[in-house]
Amino acid sequence: MSLVKLFSTSSSRFVSCFNKSLVSFSQKVDVLSKTAVENSSHSSCLEQTNEDLSTFTTYFPKTFNLASYINNSETLQNLLHLDVNLSKIEKKPQLVEKILKLSCGNIENFILFIKDYVNVDEIGTFITKNPLILYESLEDLNVRINYLQSKKFSSNDIQRIVSKNPYWLMFSTPRIDRRLGYFQKKFNLAGQEVRHLSTRQPRLITYNLHHVMTNTFVIKEEMGFTDSELKKLLLKKPKLWMMNQRALLERFNYIHNVMKIPHLVIRQNPEVLLCRNYIVKQRHMFLQKLGRDQFEPKKENFIPIMALAEGTDTEFCKKYAKCNIDDFNMFLKTI
C-alpha cells in the first residue's frame, strides 16, 4: 500500500512539474512567433508576394559532379572557356571544394602571369593537370621563376619547363634546388648538362625520387651499363628513368639476351627500350623465320635495331622484311 501511495504522490509531483515546464515552453514559443511576425511582413510562406525573389539562389543539394553546379557558377564557366577538363578534376573530391571557392579575380591574375610561360592553347590542360596552382600566391611563383633565371636558364628553357611540367612551380625553391643538386651529384653532371636535362625532361626533376633511384639501380646494376654510359643515356633519353622498372628490364632482357644486341648499340639507340616488348618480339621472330635477322652493320643485309621499334608494320615489311604485309599478319596468327 505504502509503496503505491509513494508512487502516486511522486508521479503527481512529476506531472505537475512537467505541466509547469510545458507552460513556460509554450510561452516562449509565443514570444518567438510574435517576433517572427514582427520581423517579416507576411505570416506564411504560402502567401503571395510582390517582392523580387530572383536574387535568391536555388537550393543546391550535395552532388557527385561539377556538372550540376556549372550553369550557376561563373568561375566554373570561365574555367570551361579556358578548356579546363572539369570531369578530370572532379575525380579528386578534395580539389573540387577548393575549385568551387575560387574567385574570378584569382584566375584572372594567374592567367595574366602564366601566359608569358605557357602557350595560350595549353593553359586549359595546364590547369587540368594541376588545379591547385591557382591557390599559390603570385609572389611565390615569381620567386620560383626568378630562381630559374638566376640559374642561367634561358627564357625559352623556362617556357618549356613550366609548360611541360605543370607541377614544377608548385615546388619551393629550396626543394627544386635540392633536387637539381641530387641529379648533378648522382650522375656527375656539369652545370650546362643539368640545364639540358631539366629542359629536356622537366618532369624527371619533380618525379618520385625513390622511383628514380630504383631505375638507376636497374639500369646500372641489373642491365650492366657503366657510369659514363649511364650519363649519356640520361641526357639522351631521360624518360627511361620514369618507366616501370619491370617493363624496362623485360625489354632489355629480350633485346640483349635473346637478340644478342650489345650494350653499345642499345646505348646509341635507347628509343628501342621505350617500345613495347611485344612489337619488338614479333618483328624479330618474323625476321628470324625469314632468315633476315642480321643486326651487324658491317655485314650485308643489315637491319638497324630501330627498325624493330619504329614505324608501322606496312613500312617495316616493305623496307626491311621485303615481303607483303599479309604474310606478316599470317605469321602473327601462328604465334
Binding site: 517582392e51 523580387d52 530572383s54 550540376s68 570531369s87
Partner: peptide, 26 residues
C-alpha cells in the same frame, strides 16, 4: 527564365554547360 519575379520575365534558350564533354566526362 530570367528577370525579376515581380515583373514580366523573359524565357531564353541558352547553352547547357553541363552537357559539355569537358564537364560531364567523355
Amino acid at each position: 527564365i530570367q528577370g525579376p519575379t515581380n515583373d514580366a520575365m523573359t524565357v531564353k534558350l541558352v547553352t547547357n554547360y553541363a552537357d559539355d564533354p569537358l564537364v560531364c566526362g567523355p
